Measured scan of single mutants.
Amino acid sequence: MATGGRRGAAAAPLLVAVAALLLGAAGHLYPGEVCPGMDIRNNLTRLHELENCSVIEGHLQILLMFKTRPEDFRDLSFPKLIMITDYLLLFRVYGLESLKDLFPNLTVIRGSRLFFNYALVIFEMVHLKELGLYNLMNITRGSVRIEKNNELCYLATIDWSRILDSVEDNYIVLNKDDNEECGDICPGTAKGKTNCPATVINGQFVERCWTHSHCQKVCPTICKSHGCTAEGLCCHSECLGNCSQPDDPTKCVACRNFYLDGRCVETCPPPYYHFQDWRCVNFSFCQDLHHKCKNSRRQGCHQYVIHNNKCIPECPSGYTMNSSNLLCTPCLGPCPKVCHLLEGEKTIDSVTSAQELRGCTVINGSLIINIRGGNNLAAELEANLGLIEEISGYLKIRRSYALVSLSFFRKLRLIRGETLEIGNYSFYALDNQNLRQLWDWSKHNLTITQGKLFFHYNPKLCLSEIHKMEEVSGTKGRQERNDIALKTNGDQASCENELLKFSYIRTSFDKI
């Protein structure tokens, strides 16, 4: 039985969820670079991206490699990797027998973001014989899940209580170790020597080791999670996991709180800001991140802002960003909400898709409305799209047979046209069989910064309504002859009103 693990408890099935942008060198404390989270699957090609990484700022997932063999891993080693800020997950990587050479110096898994409450997941690794993470000293947050690894031993010899604050939620089941077939031998045991430290858990006094050649490092209890030197002297209180010299914040392997210019500090002093819960960055760093993602459509890219001495992905609820200094300031009234469309555009074809934009005031991208039916549609669209004030790209209304009016965009005031449909149009209306009105132009103002209007096959939309939009939106004169079809717009509506004058002759039985 794995020490510190839980057996036999019912657990939810383990679901495996399925960018080499360097964020800056980590400095003297770390020998390499800070790398983003990685999802490495199918083959070993991307694994080489770990070569210079000291910190993975995010998670590391290595999974679904069915053609790899043990010899493929023999020359692979990433000794610079010290810390993973989120979680480490391995799933069905064939041929991998140990992690001792792959990650010989991995010391800390912070667990800032977890995989279903777990910071370390080893699942269905069919050839893994031992973990071998002999320098792993601290899992700051989260638990361990090690399950269905039929060859995995050296679990009962690990004292997880020396690595985690609590072992109650560890789930370590259905491994070879369960069948008591392992016969784990710690260093020196074969020669009758006791080389590794022994600890007591559940009444068992057991030597602690990761492999037959690597003991588990056990520091004096007084050192807590700070770690200790090879001689057993406690590291500085700002260290986490390990250090090369005692009581020196510049000799830590990793930091308990924050890293700044080669030393570990309790908090980031001005003019620095907390970033990702582990390091200090200056304003320029946060500003660069903001600008890199301002026009990016890459998933996970955030326009970072500053709030409460932190550089964070977005302002919290009730705050909006001051564009001059990136500071989050309290909103006066309802907060603006910028919604970034991942692929640059979004099609609204149902109430469900409209709900995804609920509360958005600025759309960074283009909207395509293609709704053919739905219950209580006008009210639903207004509830979900009615706060949109600005669209950076274009607005396209296409084959939306259920629409009679666009009044559900009740606050839309600006279409920038930074991206144009077919390279020309910022407003595009095609084949809307029941569209009769755009907006009530006596109450609604709309500016279209650039781009043209396109109207074709809107049989109940009168040309007068379209011409009014040209005047109000500032697009009059931009359109070419064929942009607004004269014969297919309003051709099934009563669009022309003329005053009919009647004269009559009164007659009676005795007068003409």
Rank of each mutant, 00 (worst) to 15 (best):
L29F: 14
L29W: 10
Y30K: 00
Y30V: 06
P31K: 08
P31C: 14
E33M: 11
V34A: 14
C35L: 00
P36V: 06
D39R: 05
R41W: 04
L44T: 08
R46M: 10
L50Q: 02
L50R: 04
L50E: 01
N52V: 02
N52S: 14
C53I: 01
G58K: 00
L60N: 00
L60A: 02
Q61M: 09
Q61N: 07
I62M: 10
L63E: 02
L63H: 15
F66V: 04
K67T: 05
K67M: 06
T68F: 06
T68N: 03
T68I: 04
R69D: 04
E71N: 13
E71W: 13
E71H: 15
E71P: 12
R74W: 06
D75I: 14
D75L: 13
D75T: 10
S77W: 10
S77N: 11
K80I: 11
K80V: 06
K80G: 14
L81Y: 00
I82P: 00
I84A: 01
T85V: 09
D86V: 01
L90K: 01
F91P: 00
R92T: 02
R92H: 04
V93H: 05
Y94F: 08
Y94D: 05
G95K: 07
G95Q: 14
G95F: 04
E97G: 13
L99D: 00
L99W: 00
L99S: 01
D101S: 06
D101K: 05
L102C: 02
L102Y: 01
L102F: 15
F103D: 00
P104R: 02
P104F: 00
N105D: 14
L106Q: 00
L106K: 00
T107Q: 04
I109V: 09
R110Q: 13
G111R: 00
G111E: 00
S112E: 06
S112K: 06
L114V: 03
L114W: 02
L114N: 04
F115W: 15
F115M: 05
L120H: 00
V121I: 10
V121A: 08
F123T: 00
F123Y: 15
F123P: 01
M125L: 03
M125K: 00
K129M: 09
E130L: 06
L131S: 02
L131Q: 02
G132P: 00
G132Y: 01
N135F: 03
L136R: 00
N138Y: 11
G142H: 00
S143L: 11
R145L: 04
I146S: 02
K148T: 14
N149K: 00
N149Q: 02
N149T: 02
E151G: 09
L152M: 15
C153W: 00
A156N: 15
A156S: 07
T157S: 11
T157G: 06
T157V: 05
S161P: 04
R162I: 08
R162N: 15
I163P: 00
I163S: 00
D165A: 04
D165C: 05
S166G: 04
V167A: 09
D169R: 15
V173T: 01
L174R: 11
N175S: 03
N175R: 06
N175G: 03
N175M: 03
D177R: 05
D178H: 07
D184G: 13
D184S: 10
I185F: 13
G188Q: 08
G188D: 13
T189C: 09
A190Y: 14
A190M: 06
A190S: 09
G192I: 03
G192Q: 14
K193N: 07
K193H: 04
N195V: 10
P197K: 10
A198E: 14
I201Y: 11
I201Q: 03
G203I: 05
G203K: 14
G203R: 08
G203V: 10
F205W: 12
F205K: 10
F205H: 06
E207A: 10
E207T: 15
W210P: 01
W210E: 02
W210T: 02
H212W: 13
H214V: 13
Q216L: 02
Q216C: 00
K217Q: 14
K217I: 14
V218R: 08
V218P: 02
C219Q: 01
C219R: 01
P220S: 09
P220Q: 11
P220L: 13
P220T: 09
K224C: 05
K224I: 10
K224T: 11
H226V: 06
H226T: 10
H226L: 09
E231T: 08
E231S: 11
L233S: 12
C235S: 00
S237A: 07
S237C: 15
E238A: 10
E238I: 02
E238F: 05
C239S: 00
C239T: 01
C239A: 00
L240Q: 07
L240N: 13
L240H: 15
G241S: 14
G241W: 01
G241N: 03
N242L: 09
N242D: 10
C243N: 00
S244M: 14
P246A: 09
P249C: 07
T250E: 10
K251R: 14
V253Q: 05
C255K: 01
R256Q: 09
N257R: 10
F258D: 04
F258N: 04
F258Q: 03
F258V: 13
L260C: 02
R263T: 12
R263G: 08
C264Y: 01
V265G: 07
P270S: 10
Y272K: 05
Y273S: 08
Y273M: 13
F275S: 06
Q276K: 10
Q276E: 10
D277S: 12
W278S: 05
W278P: 01
R279F: 01
S284C: 03
S284P: 09
F285K: 02
F285H: 13
F285D: 14
C286Q: 00
Q287H: 15
D288Q: 15
D288Y: 08
H290I: 09
K292L: 14
C293D: 03
K294A: 11
K294T: 04
K294N: 02
N295D: 04
S296H: 13
S296T: 14
R297A: 10
R298Y: 12
Q299M: 14
Q299W: 10
G300E: 07
G300D: 12
G300A: 06
C301S: 11
H302P: 12
V305N: 12
V305G: 06
H307Y: 11
N308P: 03
N309L: 07
N309G: 11
K310L: 12
K310G: 03
I312Q: 13
C315L: 00
P316K: 12
G318T: 03
G318F: 11
T320Q: 11
T320L: 09
M321P: 14
M321T: 10
N322R: 09
N325G: 14
L327Y: 15
L327V: 15
L327D: 06
C328N: 00
C328M: 01
C328F: 01
P330L: 13
C331S: 02
L332T: 04
